[in-house]
Amino acid sequence: MRLSPVEVSDGAVAIGGRPVLRGIDLTVAPGEFLALMGPNGSGKSTLVRAMTGLRPLSRGQVTLFGTPLAEFRDWRRVGFVPQRSSAESGVPASVWETVSAGRLTRRRLLRPLGAADRRAITSALELVGLADRARDGVGTLSGGQQQRVLIARALAGEPELFLLDEPTAGVDALNQRALADALRGLKDLGATVVLVAHELGPIAPLVDRAVVMRDGRIEHDGELREQDLSHHDHHHRRAGAGAHALRVSAPLDGLAGGPAEGRRP
């Protein structure tokens, strides 16, 4: 039997003395596409950050590929896609350079990029559909394209487990489809995917298992339920426009007829 790529047992996280997560038991099966869902502040981002070690547990244990996190050194098996940072870096970086950082898990010190590195970077860019933008500055890309660059960066390291923190945040409806295509590519490669999402939108068909968080606990673990899709939609309408200033449009808006409707033949 293959080891679980990521397992959390009795996990709890406290930030500044406040318990943010508690009683988390979660075992992700190899090849699973798991969506961590829930309203803002429910702890879903904290949980995925705890899986990477960026957020230490106050209790319990995280195990990656059978090894406790504190002893885990095989980072090439993990690909992390952080939330797109709002602050731009002080120096321009090209798409190629950003994605090549993903190879650092496999490169030795003071060695130039090898042929295998270049192949991996190129195919990662192809999978997210940005091969033609490799030489452009990341700052000139749209938000959704920048998010795909970050996915390509994780992909370039050829990991078995992807941890994505809100890849759909602030991405408009059309770019969400391109994003969903890129994620489908990861799934087709046989990778395990744990993805934090406030809304699934076009990603919904890919999800094998939905874990819905509420107030730092797991509320639901299993099939993606209709109410998980509609609940959030409802939540948004009630919350009003100001509550999520970053959002451009709801991803579900594009689902009904598809954005292709009313466009050129």
């Binding site: 070690g53 960026l54 050194r73 952080p82 950082a101 993903g102 650092l104 898990t105 941890l163």
Partner: peptide, 8 residues
């Protein structure tokens, strides 16, 4: 953060 998760 990415660098940390890449093991640097």
């Amino acid at each position: 953060e990415f660098a940390r998760v890449a093991g640097l």
